[in-house]
Nucleic acid binder design. Structure first.
Lengths: 334, 334
DNA sequence: ATATGATGTTTAATCGTTTAAACAAATTTT
DNA sequence: AAAATTTGTTTAAACGATTAAACATCATAT
């Protein structure tokens, strides 16, 4: 019942543990006699030997485990990312340990520390507001890191993100096409650059025919109440185009637009940066800026892997393109 | 730059590594002189020493890591569970490693094996169809396990689940209240007992006034197409009550009910076992059997913890109650 | 004065691997 | 036939912690 170790295999095959290890890892292949190798393989099979990865990791100082710290694991953006990174990692023989910072820098730092204590080989991080110092620390310690979804202009560090500014700017063309000229831009009250880029992009994407947009900042801790107030107010100000800067904002905003009797898209057009499954339940077409999640996850992991294998790799900041499309509303036959 | 070890701390404090370890772990408190202890604490702080958990786990044969294998990490049921278990674990000083079997027994076994190789202290498992043999194996090896959400009648093993049969049976009373008598029951084509219990419960929950229910089995691999056919067919058979046996079935079913022009709940009432966020976007009230996710996760972890601490603990099978409620549809002011 | 006990600290083995270095035996080169 | 090389295998140290046991030193009881 006790765990089978190299020792047991070696005893059974009548060789030293070193030889078993060599066979197991395929090193010194040319030096080991065919018969011995076979005998060892046989013993491994018969005893159903399974290496103790803990011992191996300990000795080799490599855990094949990476820390993935997302912003909010309950958000489909995060959970899908986790799934993609997980698959990518598995294919490369790595496992991931997922943590959710819930956008708290304190919690984030705690998670980073605890992952470090567990000797992760690297990190993929959706770092929250105020996490610059811990990122600097990781950089100084030469710990492989890839920032995902976000970026921090003051820190030169590997990252994978989308072009938030440009995507938002272009989305305004859609409002223009539909003849919407009174635009409201709903964003978070935040210091995160990638989110503020969305606002900036939208603002600077206004067409000449449009009036000065109204910008509202929602507090993340209080989305529902804030949104209710905001939408209620704006409905009486002739807004005919809403731009929501995140999937959660859009979800909440849409709900309140409906309760306020908005007719979408005839009276009011809606564009959201990213979406959720719930959008597909909505009876009207919503414009969505789609993020290439699969590519983000895959690129982030590959970049991290390169960095793990070559710690002195020059910093690489990958910016991916988004795509734009409308949801296909379910049309009732009634 | 190199990692600070006990060795370094010991050298700095001018003591042996054993003493540092004792201070670190708070053992032999009464034997260590106050001055030495302070000197060591000082050295720990000055060097910013952080224990190598890998080494510790290796020595103590305890990783404080548990494997959480869910059915499908993309399903909110799974991801929320992961979040809850993760928090519960964190509070107890454990980490979790999440895997998604995607309901494949082969993949499930692979994940279990790989977690074992990494020396997890135990498992919380949403075991898929056909995983009995690997569960037996875990049981025989006395590896702490808690099955969650499901159960396997042939295996006596710790579990936390809801009363699927009773919940479904009682849900039929709702149809009765609404005067719905022609019920369609939509389930998965599966061998999983907890899912079939839902069907059985619904069937045996029929009221005398109801006609024999129609039961349809959807293939999980092909939900959308199967559901389209099924709903299309049933709409012409005078069905006025739909019971969906899972959140995903309900989501898909609702979509197709809308496209088929169903008027909910006037003509057709809908009850679903569990729901998703998308349900809240739906303009009509949907009956939902709600699972006590937080309690499931918490109980599962606590049960596992007890088992880890006392491996000879008698098997405990926890059955939790569900609750029933309708979604609050968003009403347009139009 | 000597045995006994308490106090404070160190020694050394151990966990299961990996891997450089040493070694012995067989083979090839001089 | 001695030297050099190749082939096949073993020895032993190391990774960073834990912990039982040993060891001093000092205080107290006899």
């Amino acid at each position: 019942m006790a765990k089978v170790t190299l020792q047991d295999v070696a005893a059974k095959a009548g060789v030293s543990i070193a030889l078993v290890s060599y066979v197991l890892n395929g090193v010194k292949k040319d030096r080991i006699s065919k018969e011995t190798a076979e005998r060892i393989q046989q013993a491994i099979k018969e005893l159903d030997y399974r290496p103790n990865y803990l011992a191996r990791s300990f000795k080799k100082k490599k855990t094949f485990n990476i820390g993935l710290l997302v912003a909010d694991i309950a958000n489909p953006f995060s959970s899908q990312l986790a799934r993609i990174v997980g698959n990518e990692a598995e294919a490369a023989g790595y496992t991931i340990t997922i943590g959710s910072s819930d956008e708290s820098a304190t919690r984030f730092e705690k998670l980073v520390r605890s992952s470090l204590d567990r000797q992760v080989d690297g990190f993929i991080l959706a770092a929250p507001e105020g996490s610059e110092s811990i990122l600097e620390y990781l950089k100084n310690e030469h710990i492989p890191v890839v920032i995902i979804d976000r970026y921090f202009p003051t820190i030169k560090i590997n990252s994978v993100a989308v072009d938030n500014y440009e995507s938002s700017r272009c989305a305004m063309d859609e409002f223009a096409k539909l003849g919407k000229t009174n635009i409201a831009i709903i964003g978070y009250q935040t210091q995160l650059h990638h989110l503020n880029d969305r606002i900036r992009g939208a603002v600077e994407g206004m067409h000449p025919a449009m009036v000065e947009p109204i910008i509202k900042y929602i507090s993340e801790a209080n989305i529902e109440a804030d949104m209710e107030d905001t939408i209620g107010l704006l409905m009486h100000q002739g807004i005919n185009g809403f731009f929501f800067a995140s999937n959660k904002l859009g979800e909440s905003g849409l709900r309140h637009l409906i309760t306020n009797g908005a007719r979408i898209p005839d009276d009011i057009a809606v564009i959201s940066f990213d979406g959720t499954d719930a959008y597909n339940f909505y009876p009207n077409a919503i414009g969505c800026i789609r993020q290439p999640l699969a590519e983000m996850g895959s690129q982030a992991f590959q970049l991290l892997l390169k960095q793990i294998e070559n710690p002195s790799m020059p910093v690489k900041q990958i910016v991916l393109k988004t795509s734009f499309s409308y949801t296909k509303p379910i049309k009732s036959q009634l």
